[in-house]
Design a protein around this nucleic acid. Sequence first.
DNA 1: GTTAGCACTCCAATCAGTCGAGTGCTAATT
DNA 2: AATTAGCACTCGACTGATTGGAGTGCTAAC
Lengths: 346, 346
Amino acid sequence: MTLDERKQKVLLAIIKDYISTAEPVGSRTISKKYELGVSPATIRNEMSDLEELGYIEQPHTSAGRIPSDLGYRYYVDCLMKKKVLSNEEAESVIKGVRSKARDVGTVLQQTNKIISNITNYTSMVTGPQFRKSNLRHCQLVPLDNGKVLVVVVTDNGLIQNRLMDVPQTITDLDLQKISQVVNAKLQGLTLEDIKLTLIKEIYFELSKHKNIFDAAMDLIQETLNLNQQDKIYLSGTLNILNQPEFRDIGRVKTLLSLLEQDKVLKEILSDKVNLENGINVTIGGENKLEGLKDCSTVTATYQIDGKIVGSVGIIGPTRMDYEKAVSIMDFMTQYLSQMMKDFYGR
Amino acid sequence: MTLDERKQKVLLAIIKDYISTAEPVGSRTISKKYELGVSPATIRNEMSDLEELGYIEQPHTSAGRIPSDLGYRYYVDCLMKKKVLSNEEAESVIKGVRSKARDVGTVLQQTNKIISNITNYTSMVTGPQFRKSNLRHCQLVPLDNGKVLVVVVTDNGLIQNRLMDVPQTITDLDLQKISQVVNAKLQGLTLEDIKLTLIKEIYFELSKHKNIFDAAMDLIQETLNLNQQDKIYLSGTLNILNQPEFRDIGRVKTLLSLLEQDKVLKEILSDKVNLENGINVTIGGENKLEGLKDCSTVTATYQIDGKIVGSVGIIGPTRMDYEKAVSIMDFMTQYLSQMMKDFYGR
DNA sequence: GTTAGCACTCCAATCAGTCGAGTGCTAATT
DNA sequence: AATTAGCACTCGACTGATTGGAGTGCTAAC
């Protein structure tokens, strides 16, 4: 559905004004603040039409209009201009991340923080997820007192370890041998591969040290699995308390409870991950979750070697500054892709 | 200061009633609900006295009375009976933790969760802190592509690791040798010991592999340091939203912002850690932090081999159910001490 | 020392009245 | 045919007055 030019202008004015003031906007305001060169009465007629078409609504008679979900949708899809971050802003972002960029975790966390600070909404990031990670190395490190440290490393750099007891009868040499066998047989394989065939083979070879081997396998499995349900970083949760639409404690509670659940965050981030462009906006009632009906989310993905490996998201009120949100997401995901290349790329 | 028996009863009644209803309590209520055998008028006189003494106060004329900080203090110190957890409750706690008790972190987290669930307040726990930890083991694990994994284990079970690049010219054997030397020289030592003397000695021995050794030392240092500024687990932050005294968004924000800062939590937990008994109650204005003036905290410590190594804390409104809070803290710290013995004790 | 009785205070809730912002309609204007 | 001025109308937000109830403090009687 396409609107004539003046209607577009009116809708745009309403949305912009409402986004910045959070108050219903009336015909007089528009004709004064935005230069359309027509009288309030004309605007009123246009508004009446726009309301009929479903793009705006009235909280009650004798109040101004506010955009409906559909109105926002039209705005995001057709009216909004893509803004690019100013050089200054970009600089400060880059500096903010670089200064602390030791490992992937910190970079993600830092990026996240910056997003929530700039936007004043809540933001979240998932770490790089690889479809299947391979076992890179497994090592049994003997400590004193019959304790053994099991270390598992995957090819995407995840490291997990666990302390375990072993009978004193097992020597360092035994451990070395186990390590060797495990590595020789399983290195480079995915979890599925490992599960499918090879275990029996090793069992045979290592039958003497069955329980140690079991423990090691346990950790390997856990580690290789862990990637898929990776950590989600969250930042700026309390920012929603600044939004006038969340002056009600009940709402705050509902939303904060949702944000506490990783499952929910994951759902938000992975919802429409397959879209071509990358940046995706979900407005108000478009959200599947009941508790997000008054919120909008902006999600995007970042890449390594052209493959999508993680996502970034913002949650704010439906009355969100979409222009800003989108432009920041755009910049940040590009930047993240860049940074990730340094860590993982070939 | 000691009060006559009837005044005590009246004060107790006011506090109990106020804790459970959050409404100022009047003389009539007391004479009806609590069996003191006297008329409202008499109660009024007593209340007037109690107010003069500073134990209760009136929000405004013609309202009932509410306990003052001093009143709560008297209650906690003199009037409150120590309750012991019922067998049922204790059972369910134990079950709740046991079922997931794989490592120390999970136990602490689980304990924490249970505390906040039972009390409906916010709770926090610090992990075991040892004054100085010793290096137990350091291992360089060669991976492919010239990557090396450095693993450091301390005697209290903390494990850290880091991936690093080394020139291809270094062989597995070199690495083994470095590991050996480092372990031989540094095992069992604290950070101070290591810093002071031995480094030069090793430098000499390993002069060929200076940069690898440097990296390893870096991680060792970091790991041995890490204990002191250990992780703090937090649970049930949103519970405060259930409290009527936090119906105001501004307050919620202040408090939640405080709880986001580890520094603040640490301060709360370590404030009076040296008291004999272990369980410590800080009421309203007794808190040093301005933002906690309307809150009370209950903190306690747990032990390993008789030494205090960590603390547990609850934060709630001043109108807190101190009896419940204290009894749960009592049980939980004992239980934690018990559990820790399994992990670390001799 | 205790209590009944009563005047008094103050909050909370309710209601009427007013104001102003904003609309929708109509008729006049361009 | 589109635009606009004018006007009646609606409705929420605010104001102020009124009322009811909970609770106190004081006094005098028991």
